[in-house]
Amino acid sequence: MKILSLMTVFLVGAALIYGTLDMPKWGDPQSPASTHVSPYYLNHSLEDTATPNVVTSVLADYRGYDTFGETVVIFTAGMACILLLKAGRKRRGNGHV
């Protein structure tokens, strides 16, 4: 079982290393990720949002609904934690009664 898991791990690792052979060089300014969409945000965020920090302007202005969805996720996780821990306490109380 352990051997099988180890083989799976190394198989996945080998497949991913094969995939990195086509990746652009690390820190290459001409890589597709840094030439395609992001120059728009860097050029326009100051006149659109008047915020010098581009990360926060994208996080809260351009992708505000995305951040809202993230808060929904955190709220759901917090509610799940509270409900799980509370349910355990209640069940034990019932068991004693």
């Binding site: 992001s38 990360v55 993230e70 996720v73 996780a77 934690c81 799980l84």
Partner: peptide, 25 residues
């Protein structure tokens, strides 16, 4: 490039939320 920073900022917070639920379970 600011875009991966924004997306991964969201992913880190979701990571900790997932970990909290897993620990509760």
């Amino acid at each position: 490039n600011p875009l991966p920073h924004v997306l991964m900022l969201t992913a880190i917070v979701v990571m900790v939320a997932t970990m909290g639920v897993a620990l509760a379970v």
